[in-house]
Each structure stands twice: as C-alpha cells, then as structure tokens.
Amino acid sequence: MESTKQFAKYMKADERPSVDDSIDLSSLLGEWFNTKRDTNYIKKVILSDRNGSLIINAYGASDGGLIDWGEAEAIPYGSGISSLMAAGFHSLFNLDGIETHLVSNQKLSILCIQSYTRYLDGSGRIGHFSREFFHR
C-alpha cells in the first residue's frame, strides 16, 4: 500500500518532490570579496563544504584590517521548484552580544549578502541592515 502522508503546504512553492540527493553546494564554495572596497560591513566570506555541511567564515571591516568572526554553519537553499543546486544560504553569528543573521542569494557569479544585526549587549545601539555584493 502506498503512503498517503500529506506534507504541510502554505504556498505553491511548497509542492516540492521528496529527493534522496543532497543539495549541491559547489556554486557557493570559495572565497568571496565585497565589491565595495570601503565597506563598513563584511569585507569577505569563505564558504566551504565540511562533510556535506556548508560552513561560512566571515570577516568584518575594520580600520586595522579584518575582524575574523570565526565560522558558522550556513543552511543552503535551492532556487526553483526542483533545483538541487544551492542558490543561497542563511547563517547566524553571535559575537559577544552582537547577533548578525546573514541571508544570501547567488546569481550570475555575484553573491548578494544581506546582514541583519542587533545588539544584545546593553549598549542601547540600534540594530541595522545592509545588503552588499560579493565576487570571487
């Protein structure tokens, strides 16, 4: 007897078939540099595959060079109804009372990264958003 299990659906894009394959991370992997040299946000990211998991190393801008944020796991996403090729990701960095979510999409060899930052350190600073573009 075939399974009649139903999956949750809230939009047409949820009508995705189940697959046995994992998402192909190759389109995201490598070292990405901000196209804006004088950015105040993220200068570069390195995306790597560690045993099938997408790992991001991010580096923030500083007058004295780069600030190494360390690494975090990034959750990859495909684009389109049946794509198994990664087209973007999201990740979370918690850095001494500063929480930054990175959300990205990649198209035409450009990686667009949006950052959403909020301060949990009691400093009273206002959270901020940025969107910047990266190339290899």
Rank of each mutant, 00 (worst) to 15 (best):
D121S: 04
T35Q: 12
N34A: 06
E2A: 00
I98L: 02
F93L: 05
S82A: 13
H90Q: 13
K36A: 12
L84A: 01
A58G: 14
A87N: 11
K9F: 03
K9M: 07
R16T: 10
K12R: 01
S83L: 07
R37E: 15
D49L: 09
G122H: 06
I81H: 00
G97T: 03
N40L: 14
S109A: 13
L54E: 12
F7E: 12
L66I: 06
D20I: 02
E2C: 00
L92C: 05
N51A: 15
G80D: 10
I126N: 10
I42D: 08
E99Q: 14
P76Q: 08
T4V: 00
C112M: 12
K36F: 13
H90I: 05
A8Q: 09
N94P: 02
M11Q: 12
W69K: 07
C112V: 13
F89Q: 15
F134P: 11
T117Y: 01
Y116F: 09
S82Y: 09
H128C: 06
H135P: 00
W32D: 11
Q6D: 06
N40A: 13
I81F: 04
I23Q: 03
K9I: 12
Y10M: 08
K43S: 15
D63E: 14
N57Q: 10
A72R: 10
G97E: 05
G127D: 05
S130N: 14
I81L: 13
E15W: 00
D68Y: 05
D24W: 01
R50D: 13
A58S: 15
G122I: 06
F89V: 11
L29W: 04
M85W: 00
G88N: 13
Y77P: 01
C112E: 14
I98A: 01
G122R: 02
G127L: 03
A72K: 10
K44Y: 10
G78F: 04
T4P: 00
D121Q: 03
S115I: 08
S82V: 11
S27Y: 02
K107P: 01
I55C: 07
E31R: 14
R16P: 01
D121P: 05
R118N: 06
V103M: 13
I42K: 03
L92D: 07
P17M: 04
E31D: 15
L28C: 10
A86R: 10
N94Y: 11
L95S: 15
E99L: 06
K9S: 07
T4L: 00
W69T: 03
S26R: 07
S48C: 07
D21E: 14
S115L: 09
K5I: 09
S109D: 15
D121W: 02
V103F: 10
F7D: 04
K43H: 11
Y119M: 06
G60I: 02
I75C: 04
A72P: 06
L92S: 09
R37I: 11
R125L: 08
I67V: 15
D68F: 05
R50F: 10
L120E: 07
N40T: 14
A86F: 09
A13V: 08
F129R: 12
L108S: 15
M85F: 01
T117G: 04
I98E: 02
G70H: 11
I75S: 04
V103D: 09
L25Y: 03
I23M: 06
L25V: 04
S104C: 09
Y59V: 08
